[in-house]
Write a protein that binds this DNA or RNA. Structure first.
Lengths: 266, 266
DNA sequence: AGCAGAAATCCGATATTTCGGACATTGATC
DNA sequence: GATCAATGTCCGAAATATCGGATTTCTGCT
């Protein structure tokens, strides 16, 4: 109820910039600032931060100084831009280590990426969106970093078809926003198709999709289930669509294996 | 200059708790709070946070609410403790990906931990202290998490002997605080010994120490050097002291190999 | 050199947040 | 069931951090 004072939540969804109105707490401004950098995924100049977050310039300067001193932010290059600093990594590591499932998942994801050599990920739901929690790039050169912590519509992903496993058609309709069935390129995912994929995935114990978000990419995912059999996360590979079929099958086996271990674990 | 208002810096070194005096900015209180959780490396109850950071109780409640809402913190279990939340992981990942050397180092550390099966680390200096930046546990059960982002006296570590490589005896004396030559168990590292280790390490291209911080642990480290040949980081293994000699030699070769790649890279 | 525009700093006033302490709630112990 | 302790909420007042705008410094360009 406090942060909303600064950001108009209604305006949220779209390109995340807030129009500040009144005077706000330092904390709320800092939260907006960090969130902005995260969405940007790149260093930003202070003036731009001020504009894009709707924070008065003098305030941003003041806060950035404080944050740089605390190593939450770092001044980059000599171009006067700032980005996240080492403290965030330390705190983030503490978080990862404190969550049992994620700590174990890290092992599996690293192992998969190392042995198979393709990009492996660990994904979960965050509200009604899909989220990459862990990402370990394979040996390929490109696609170095992925979108850790960036929310994506559930129907855009292979894993999404597993993560809503336990819901009936009506529940899903209520849960996933209408507009999320439209892909970035404008194509539309028919609901029946989605439900069919889902049922097939539950049956087979894995799911594979090609050319969803990106035409030339194939995703394969296996479900991590809790003791009640509910899918609480997925492990997946992201590979070029032209990857050899046998290799893909090997990957799926590896995924099922890893996902199985994590399902046991908790 | 702002954060100091809250924390008495002189009191620092010891058990990190500050005695708040005057009214402080929310930001400064939050920084103290996060730093406290990081040192603690465990969830804490709000009342304890208030006591240990010297922040008024009502203020902590207020701030924690804001931070939980932003996912910077998370309420754990049902015992009312709080700890870092997922947002810290996302911001931390952004940081890691934004620093070239660290991003590359992550590959190497993961690879080493996977292939050799022992805990691998990537370390750097932070001021006049040694710091584990990346840690990847091996296949052994114990010693799951390490002290990422926790400052350690340079002489306590194998890597430390490489990281001050470029300094002369006088520089080192000026750089490393006197008291840092005393190990946690009270033993004292003679300066000549340290300098000898250093010279030998530079000569050999790696360093190995046993029973420094912990009697039953051996550390092996290889230097990552910049274009001027200066040691800017190290890669290392942390293994039980009774590890087979041949295995240790193989590890050292693997370390030199990885460190060499990173030295090339930048 | 000189100029224009942007980046960064400075400063005082006021709207606001922090803080203390009182009050409510929960839970454990005897 | 009563007592004590710990946890969490609420509220008004006072201290002060945020903000606007003016000033200064920097940078690139003609």
């Amino acid at each position: 109820m406090t942060a909303e004072r600064v950001m108009d939540k209604a305006a949220g969804q779209a390109m995340g910039q807030a129009t500040a109105t009144a005077r706000a707490r330092g904390i709320d401004r800092v939260i907006a600032l960090m969130e902005h950098l995260h969405r940007l995924r790149a260093p930003a100049r202070i003036a731009d931060i001020a504009r894009d977050t709707g924070t008065p310039r003098s305030t941003v300067y003041e806060l950035v100084n404080t944050l740089v001193e605390a190593r939450w932010l770092e001044t980059r290059d000599e171009d006067g831009t700032v980005f996240f600093g080492p403290a965030m990594h330390y705190y983030g590591s503490d978080y990862l280590n404190s969550v049992d499932l994620i700590r174990k998942a890290r092992r599996e994801v690293n192992h998969l990426a190392e042995v198979i050599g393709e990009t492996a990920q660990f994904c979960m739901l965050d509200g009604n969106k899909y989220l990459v929690v862990l990402n370990e790039p394979g040996r390929r050169m490109f696609r170095i970093s992925s979108d850790i912590g960036i929310k994506v519509p559930i129907p855009w992903t292979a894993s999404g078809r597993l993560l809503v496993d336990h819901m009936g058609p009506d529940e899903i309709r209520a849960f996933i926003p209408e507009e999320d069935f439209t892909l970035p390129d404008g194509r539309r995912i028919v609901e029946e198709e989605f439900l069919r994929d889902m049922a097939a995935a539950r049956e087979a114990g894995y799911v594979r999709t090609t050319g969803l978000v990106d035409r030339f990419t194939t995703c394969m995912a296996a479900p991590v289930r809790d003791t009640q059999g509910r899918c609480i996360a997925t492990i997946c590979f992201v590979v070029p669509a032209d990857t050899d079929a046998d290799e893909q099958n090997a990957m799926i086996e590896a995924l099922k294996d890893s996902a199985g271990k994590l399902s046991m674990a908790r």
